[in-house]
């Protein structure tokens, strides 16, 4: 299945998951993104790299940030962009996922950017689209969110330059987080020294240590000597499904406070994929504080998504 993303020459054609991608491919994405960083700061924020290409954002699940940065990334590359919010569209009228894809395919599009609530939806679409179309996974169920992971890697590299000596912790609802899964794979591939996950047992998936992480159930142990702190968003519905007693207790045990932040290295950076629950997983003073790189992540998201779109659209599918 890892070959699903690569064409015969071993080049990236789809971008569905970090799993199975080499360090070289990930580094190529980061380097390409770096070259796009300046574009957003120019008076004319456009390059003609994808002129004449049509990109369809297919969002089966609501999203503001991810959809917007994908739209901006595509338009800065001069592609034509169409965003479809499926929650209010055809599938709610009973059309199947496959029929939606086939219909759009018939309109000669070049790329699908897909977000879907079910794990594996990205794979399924990539397996069932015409070979000239590239598919980018913008989040599928609890499986993967590889573009978010890459923009996080990009941000880490910006501040820390070298992945090798880093100790990184991902804190929060790992069980339901597609972001955490993709981050863990990316950090492992890029070769950081240590990856930790910090959460109560109700929010950790079984056998998580086999993903190549150290498991901590308290912040006091988990934060010690860190270079990078990644907070994961806590969904409100976790309280009603007997996973956590209350937001207050969660913040008390796993919230990132000024005091706890001192346990990490003094130059540690604080990241969050957004949207933030202030006072639930992170104190406002930290989210807006000097160690926070949360807004930098958002800006970097555009360059990283431009890089991934350009790289995948350069490489043709297998059966062409």
């Amino acid at each position: 299945m890892n070959n699903l993303q690569l064409n015969k020459e071993g080049k990236l054609h789809h971008f569905i998951t970090i799993e199975g991608l080499s360090k070289e491919i990930l580094t190529e994405i980061l380097d390409t993104a770096e070259s796009f960083l300046g574009i957003s700061e120019q008076p004319v924020k456009k390059v003609p790299l994808l002129r004449g290409k049509t990109i369809v954002n297919l969002f089966f699940e609501n999203s503001t940030r991810t959809r917007t940065t994908f739209e901006l990334a595509a338009s800065r590359l001069s592609a034509d962009v169409l965003s479809i919010n499926i929650a209010t569209s055809a599938t709610s009228k009973g059309e199947s996922l496959l029929d939606t894809i086939r219909n759009l395919e018939a309109m000669h599009v070049d790329m699908f950017v897909v977000r879907h609530a079910i794990s594996g939806a990205g794979h399924f679409i990539a397996q069932n689209t015409a070979p000239h179309i590239s598919v980018i996974n913008a989040g599928d169920g609890q499986h993967a969110h590889p573009t978010q992971a890459m923009l996080d890697m990009f941000t880490i590299r910006q501040y820390k330059h070298d992945f090798k000596p880093l100790k990184v912790a991902i804190i929060g609802d790992i069980l339901h987080s597609r972001v955490a899964r993709s981050q863990i794979q990316a950090l492992n591939t890029l070769g950081v020294k240590e990856i930790r996950v910090v959460a109560p047992k109700t929010l950790l998936p079984s056998h998580v240590e086999q993903l190549g992480v150290k498991v901590f159930n308290t912040m006091e142990e988990g934060l010690d000597d860190l270079d990078v702190i990644i907070m994961v968003r806590l969904q409100k519905e976790r309280m009603t499904s007997a996973l956590l007693p209350s937001e207050q207790e969660y913040f008390k045990c796993f919230g990132l406070t000024e005091e706890r932040l001192k346990l990490a290295k003094p130059d540690a950076i604080v990241m969050h994929p957004g949207p933030i629950n202030r006072g639930v997983e992170i104190a406002s003073s930290i989210a807006d504080g000097p160690q926070s790189v949360i807004l930098q992540q958002v800006s970097n998201g555009i360059a990283v998504r431009m890089a991934i779109m350009t790289l995948t659209l350069q490489n043709k599918g297998d059966s062409v």
Partner: peptide, 15 residues
Amino acid sequence: HEGFFSTRYGLPGIP
């Protein structure tokens, strides 16, 4: 099955 496979692919597991 709730185990490494379900964790790796983000699939709801059955213990």
